[in-house]
Amino acid sequence: MKILITGNNGQVARELRLALADKANVIALGRDRLDLANTELLRQQVRAQAPDLLINAAAHTAVDQAESEPEAAFAINATAPGVLAEEAAALGIPLIHYSTDYVFDGTGPGAYSEADAPNPLGVYGRSKLAGEQAIQAVGGQHLILRTSWVYSLHGRNFLLTMQRLLQEREELKVVDDQIGAPTWAGSIAQATAQLVEGWQSGNRHWGVYHLTNQGETSWFGFASAIAEGLKAAGKPCARLLPIPSSEYPTPARRPLNSRLDCSKLARDWHVTLPDWRSALAECLAQPR
């Protein structure tokens, strides 16, 4: 089997290469070979590779930056997924695409299910929702996997930022009123590998699914867990102070409630991710 992954050095793409290496011939195309904003090149590459499965792990993920460059965000997060869906449908193959908790406004009282109506707060969320809709409009075989608070030992993410700041400063303020599930890119990749196995075994429950590590915490809670890891390793660590979102204004508004109900994924595909704390421990145990 041949799997084409858009993205190469991104957090999820890196982990996908590892998780799928023994299952298929994996071709991962980074930005140097595949510019998602160039739709013609995108079509040409998919047709040239002629894969058995297409995974879109590339995205415009700079949430605040998207507010000042909506055209770029929509080109990569909305237009490109639609093009990929069209090419996948033409080849008669499935498309796996990753979306986000930011399609919701975070005002709901509990964990969001796939049946809840999206209402994104900013450009990033709107562009990701538009990408979902573009894929669904094509009507081919697809899995849209919404996840949240993605981190790994590579790239730019909350884990690496906190590890650096906690060792540089004496005191650090972190938002404590946004609730969600930190999700390790490795867990996403491992779950995706299970979904690929399910598809190969005949599962055809296509559609939108929520996929996050289990449990919930705040950004402050996540930072506290990261701090515990630094202390256990004998490294210097700043004192953490919880603050409300109002004390840390950003160009893009974030949902206060980012909890996603992943029971549909467990029911239809028999895939359940580990608790966020155990996933963090597994991530930190990985060689860099």
Rank of each mutant, 00 (worst) to 15 (best):
G131A: 02
S148N: 13
P244E: 00
R288C: 14
L34Q: 05
D268W: 08
Q163T: 02
R169V: 02
W149Q: 02
P236L: 00
S263T: 15
G125Q: 04
N213H: 00
L121V: 14
K128E: 12
A78I: 07
W276T: 02
L240S: 04
E69Q: 15
R277Y: 10
L29A: 11
D101E: 13
L256K: 13
T100D: 09
Q194Y: 06
E132L: 05
L41R: 11
A223D: 06
R164N: 06
A48F: 09
G110C: 10
W269R: 04
D105C: 04
R47G: 11
A66G: 10
A62Q: 15
D275A: 11
E67A: 02
S187T: 01
V196N: 00
L95V: 06
Q214W: 01
Q286V: 07
Y112R: 07
W199R: 03
V83Q: 10
A88N: 03
R146K: 09
V196F: 02
I243A: 07
K231I: 13
N203L: 14
Y151E: 01
Q65S: 11
S245F: 02
S218W: 06
G7F: 02
S99T: 13
P120S: 10
R239Q: 15
G202Y: 12
T147P: 02
P242S: 10
R164W: 05
T183N: 13
A75P: 07
N25H: 09
A57I: 06
A28K: 06
G198I: 06
A48V: 03
E171F: 08
V208D: 09
P274E: 07
I144R: 04
T39C: 09
I27T: 11
L160P: 05
A223G: 06
F220W: 08
A66N: 03
A227K: 04
G221E: 11
S245T: 13
W149R: 06
L240E: 06
S127F: 10
R288I: 15
W269A: 06
A88T: 01
D177F: 05
Q214R: 10
T161S: 09
P51I: 08
R253D: 14
R43K: 15
V103R: 03
G106Y: 03
Y124A: 09
A193V: 01
Q65W: 00
A37Y: 05
L211S: 02
L195K: 00
A134E: 05
P70N: 06
W199C: 05
A85C: 08
L160A: 05
N77A: 09
D35N: 15
T250A: 15
E87T: 03
Q194C: 07
P94Q: 03
T79K: 14
L95T: 08
L241H: 10
I55M: 00
H270F: 07
S187G: 01
P236C: 01
A85M: 10
W184E: 03
E197Q: 15
A181T: 12
P244R: 01
T183L: 13
D268Y: 10
P81I: 05
